[in-house]
Design a protein around this nucleic acid. Sequence first.
DNA 1: TAGATTGTTAATCGATTAACAATC
DNA 2: TAGATTGTTAATCGATTAACAATC
Lengths: 215, 215
Amino acid sequence: MTPKPAIPRPVLERIVLYLRQLERFRRDGIDTVSSPELGDAVGASAAQVRKDLSYFGQFGQRGHGYDVRELARTLRSLLSLDREWRAALVGAGNIGRALCTYRPFRERGFHIVALFDNDPHREGLTWARLKVQPMSQLPRTVRDLGIELGIIAVPPEAAQLVADQLVAAGVRGILNFAPTRVVVPENVPIRSADLAVDIESLAFLVANRAEAPEP
Amino acid sequence: MTPKPAIPRPVLERIVLYLRQLERFRRDGIDTVSSPELGDAVGASAAQVRKDLSYFGQFGQRGHGYDVRELARTLRSLLSLDREWRAALVGAGNIGRALCTYRPFRERGFHIVALFDNDPHREGLTWARLKVQPMSQLPRTVRDLGIELGIIAVPPEAAQLVADQLVAAGVRGILNFAPTRVVVPENVPIRSADLAVDIESLAFLVANRAEAPEP
DNA sequence: TAGATTGTTAATCGATTAACAATC
DNA sequence: TAGATTGTTAATCGATTAACAATC
C-alpha cells in the first residue's frame, strides 16, 4: 500500500496561490484558463503550474485548459478550504488585535473564536466581540468550541510555553507569529510567520542589491 | 572581476536566525558556541550552520567554535542591521496599526516614520505619534525623511498601485502584507508576508497530517 | 600533544525547467 | 482535421548533507 506522496511545501504554497487567482478569474467572469495564463498571474511558469497540479490529480482538458470554476472548487476541497476552521488566538497585543478582524482569514473561513492572555491587565478586554480569557480556560474552551488551530501572538519569551499549552489543550495545528523557534510534537503542524526575518532579509537585499540588473 | 556570489534566499533567512540566537546567547552570558550548539538552537544542522556562514566568510576558530559577541557583531554588520532603517507604512488599517508599534521591528532599528492612507476617513488619524497622510504626500515625505523602505498594508486590490507609488517615490525595498502578487522593477527587492498562504497551507497539513509519525 | 571543531569538497537529495507524446 | 494545451518524463539546476583534511 503506497502512502499518498507528500506534497512538497513550495508546491502547497503555490497551489494556495493558484486557488486564490482562480477565484479572481471567476469574479472577473473568466471561465477557462491555460497553464501559461494561470502561471503569469501568480508569477510561476506554465510547466510549474502543470507539475504542481499533477501532485493532486488531472484537472485540465488538453487543447483547452482548465475550467476555472471547477478547478477552484476542486482545489478548495483538496485543501480543506471548503469548510470553517476555528482558531484560538493567544496574545492580546497589537498583532493579536489585528488578526482578530483580519479579512483574508475571515474570507477563507478561518474564525478566531476565542482570545487568551495571561496579563491580568488585559483579561476582560473585549475585541471583536471576544472577551480575553485567562490561559487556564484554554483546555475547556478548545474542547467546548471545537477549536482546531492555535495562533501564537505573544512575545518570544512566552511562545514555547504557549505552544505547549495549545498542544496540551488539543489544537491540531499552530500558526506562530512570535519571532522565535517553537518546538511541537511532529503530528502537530506548525507554520511560522516571522515578520522580523522578512524585513531583516529585505534590508540585506536593499543594502546589497545588484547594481546592474540583468539585460 | 567576479561579482560577489549571491546569497541563496534560504541561507539569508537562516543567517538572520543565527544572529538572533547569538544575541540571545549573549544575553544569557554565553561567550562561545560551536556549530552544533547554534544549529540545535535554531533547528538547523551543524553542517548547515557552517556552510551558511561560509557564504559570508570565516568566523570560527577550529577546535573552539565561534565567539558569540564577535560573530553577532559581524553578522549585524554584514546584514546591515547595525544601523537604522526608515520605512513608510501605507494602509492605516488593522495590520498597519499593529506594525506601527511592532517591537521586533523597533528592536532591530526598523522605524516606521510616516503613515499613509487614501481613505479620507482615516486622514488625520494619529497612531504612535504619526499622523495619517494622503498618498499625495508620499514623494515629498520619502525624500524629506530619507525613507528607504515601504510597507504595504492595504487591501489586495490596491496593492499594485501602492507599490507603483512607493517605487516612484523612491523607496528601495518593499515589504508586502497584501495577499496578492505585486510586480516591481527588479532593482527593488520585495518580500511578501502572506499570512493567508500561511494559515491556508497549515489547514491543509492539519487536514492531511501524517497518521503515523516516523519512528 | 590530543581532542575538538572548523571550513570546504564531494555526494546526495529535491525541486525546477524543458521537452514532447498524448489527446481534446 | 489542425491547432492548442495538457500531463509526464527526462534533464538541469540548486540546496542540503556527509565526510574529512586542516588546524586551533
